[in-house]
Computed example of a mutant assay.
Amino acid sequence: MNILVINSGSSSIKYQLIKMPEETVAASGLVERIGLEGALIHYNAGETKLSKEVEIPDHETGLKRITAFLMDSDVGVIEDENHIQIVGHRVVHGGKSLTKTVEVTAEVKEEIRNVFPLAPLHNPHNLRGIEVAEKVFANAKQVVVFDTAFFHTMPQKAYQYAIPKKFMEENAVRSYGFHGTSHKYVSEKAIAYLNEKGLPSEKIITVHLGNGCSISAIKDGIAIDHSLGMGPANGLIMGTRAGDIDQSVIFYLIDKLGYTPQQVNDILLKESGMLGLTGYSDMRDIEEKSAEGNETCRLALYMNGYRIKKYIGSYIAALNGVDAVVFTAGIGENSSVIRKIALEDMEYLGLHLDHRKNDVRGKTIRPINSPEAEKQILIVPTNEELEIAKQSYNLIK
């Protein structure tokens, strides 16, 4: 069965054509810098590896260019759209009612639309991807996997806010959590790895660091707490998002400095985080500038790592200990600098980083803790697309 997985981000589309249940990838790639100058589409299929700079003003154009590659007479892997049986979509926010993987219906799309305000950078693009895929792959089953679904196991003490409870009961104002597809995938991989090694695996902290960042506390495979909340904006410092911030700052910007609520929202979501601190949103640029002596970038790196450290400590308390801390996603898997800062002076908790192992890059699950360490520190490459394919296949089969 061919499953095309579409992972639409705020300015990108990751895609994989996966054969299930074999879990083999026939084609994969990325459309990046959507809506920006220098947009790129990458396409990989067997020995074919192509990258092309093209104009991609929106997600619809991006998806159509992906489809053209998949069906290309020279480099394509399918003859026509009917060779796609399932299209699996990542949707960031499922709200209160969409708590599991579902087949797309008009009602599902309407609910995704209803929670646009909770994930304004993602849900509109996710829904657009679904609508375009319905046209292009009219005979395929359309399936949605929600990032929030993994966190519906959180206890009420973790997801309820300390505001009048009527807002939760009447308006669904609560913490939902995000990046659940990634956290689910890497936590299961980490637990399997630890079990194979005969190591404890009950208490896991997963750290997802990309342009968006989050951290989860997982006990016996079940999420019990998470850094992101009602929307994907709080918690860790991100590429363009501020993460945790005193709400007084928001009212000060509005009441004293004259910004509108929409302007403040845009500042916190699109102009803050590492971009606001340094002028750069790409961690590779920031690390390079820091290494060249840029103190602003150096401070931003330490602020970023310090925020991660605080969450690791709080989740160790919530779990009553930890068996493994797991780093994943683009920055989590590749930035030895951020991992080093985040784990600095954590030896008293049994977290001993092996700096030599930390500096070695790889694409497989690997420990980066010292051999004598009481606790495990793992890098587990995430594969949200495969997780979406698995859930989509299990639903439809």
Rank of each mutant, 00 (worst) to 15 (best):
M20L: 12
V132C: 11
G62M: 12
M71A: 07
Y159V: 05
R361C: 00
P117C: 09
P164H: 10
Q142R: 13
A329F: 09
C297F: 11
A217M: 01
H152W: 05
I267K: 07
N383W: 12
T364K: 15
Q16N: 03
H208A: 06
K256A: 06
I13A: 09
E271K: 15
Y306C: 00
K256D: 09
A329V: 07
F150Q: 04
A318Y: 08
L194W: 13
E60D: 15
Y43A: 04
E110L: 14
V75F: 10
H226F: 03
K157P: 00
P57A: 10
P21S: 00
E385M: 05
E347I: 02
A26W: 03
I86Q: 05
G276M: 08
L127Y: 14
L351P: 14
G231F: 00
I204L: 06
H183F: 08
S281R: 14
H42Y: 05
H83M: 08
I250H: 01
L63R: 11
T148P: 06
A324H: 12
V337T: 15
N2G: 03
R90A: 10
V380P: 09
A138H: 15
R174T: 02
T105M: 00
S272G: 04
E81M: 10
P117G: 13
K357T: 02
V264Y: 04
I41T: 04
A190V: 11
E384I: 04
A342P: 11
D345I: 02
A317R: 06
D354T: 03
T328N: 07
R90S: 11
R356L: 09
C297Y: 10
L299Y: 12
S314I: 00
T296W: 06
I6Y: 07
I377Y: 07
M346Q: 09
D345R: 09
G330L: 05
V108I: 15
I215N: 03
K109W: 04
L299P: 00
K109M: 15
E47K: 15
G229R: 06
P367M: 13
L253E: 03
K203W: 13
F146C: 11
G9C: 08
V136W: 11
V264W: 03
G212D: 08
I338G: 12
I267D: 00
I250E: 03
D255F: 01
I224W: 02
L253D: 05
E103P: 02
H42P: 00
M274P: 08
A342R: 10
L349M: 15
V25D: 05
E372S: 14
S314F: 01
L127F: 14
H179Y: 02
A373R: 14
L378Y: 13
T48S: 10
A45R: 04
I204F: 04
T382A: 10
